[in-house]
Design a protein around this nucleic acid. Structure first.
Lengths: 168, 168
DNA sequence: AGAAAGTCTACTAATGCAATGGACTTTATG
DNA sequence: CATAAAGTCCATTGCATTAGTAGACTTTCT
């Protein structure tokens, strides 16, 4: 149940482009520098995003990348599906539906997988780049975010992971 | 956002053991045969489940594996975390909370990841092996599962894609 | 004693992920 | 029109993880 490094880079780059949506084309080098991403790797990612028509490129000197649509119309689900594939923990929604109908002994398990995917899809399809850069996400309207109290005090800068311990 | 093959095998094996919870120890070979899993690989998985105290082994002739707790008290989240780690799409819940507090430019993104993890955790922590084998999962009380009508005819072997349906 | 089972450690093959290198094309501009 | 600055495209590599195997060992039943 993980997003790849590449997927995270893609999201960071897209957020950055969303913040600068008014500024025209941004150089790969600049994105890489500001978000601290490996430049050559980022290049491949941007190319993929371009082929998926989410960004467009300007070639030659003064070139670079920019969003092709308004940040409010680019959903996180699109980016994540492009880079990391289906949101389901196993196979994809359609295959899961087939398995639920055919694999009787395991149908309940596949149904749970489908429920998990639906829950993730609901969130990611309702969150856009605009939501991310404005600081409020639309699916969090239940006061959950704002009602948060009792935050832990963190002294150290490095998150430490104790060996063998599961943290969630 | 994927579960590993190993994780799927573990879930299948645990479901099988849950179905036969009354029957005492089941041989690895029998589990492997019935669920069609690679025997030697399954052996490692069961060992891991044993070390996590979810199953127990009986050694020697007439030995095998059995659940150590009632199926109604083994949650899918336990099994999946054991084999595939945290449920969050990135890092784990605790690290995400830290990042939300510290990485200002990306906090909204990490918050979305945390929301996704919470949604998955809610489902998987509320579903037990008992739910899987009895054919009803507890989180689906909104009529979604039970109100299902219009089931497709299972004659054909090929999955048919219904138009307009989101597939992953 | 022998057979049937789990235990444990090591190994390997294959895959996928992350990253890099380098030749090529396009464009601005002096 | 030459040059530099940028994107494009493809090949390759290093590495980690995953999936699976092998085999020697231990325990228990009969």
């Amino acid at each position: 149940m993980k997003i790849s490094q590449k997927g995270l880079y893609a999201l960071q780059a897209m957020m950055m482009l969303a913040r600068r949506h008014h500024q025209g084309a941004i150089k790969i080098r600049e994105i890489a520098y500001e978000e601290d991403l490996p430049e050559k790797f980022l290049e491949l990612i941007l190319l993929e995003l371009k082929n998926a028509r989410m960004v467009e490129s300007v070639r030659g000197a003064k070139g670079g990348y920019q969003l092709r649509r308004d940040p409010a119309e680019i959903h996180l689900s699109e980016i994540m599906r492009l880079i990391d594939g289906p949101l389901a923990p196993f196979a994809d929604a359609e295959q899961l539906r087939v398995l639920i109908n055919r694999d009787l002994p395991h149908r309940a398990l596949y149904q749970v997988f489908l429920d998990v995917r639906d829950a993730a899809a609901k969130i990611l399809e309702n969150t856009t780049l605009a939501d991310l850069i404005s600081g409020t996400a639309p699916h969090s309207t239940k006061g959950k975010r704002s009602a948060k109290k009792n935050e832990k005090e963190k002294g150290s800068v490095l998150p430490m992971v104790v060996a063998g311990q599961k943290n969630d």
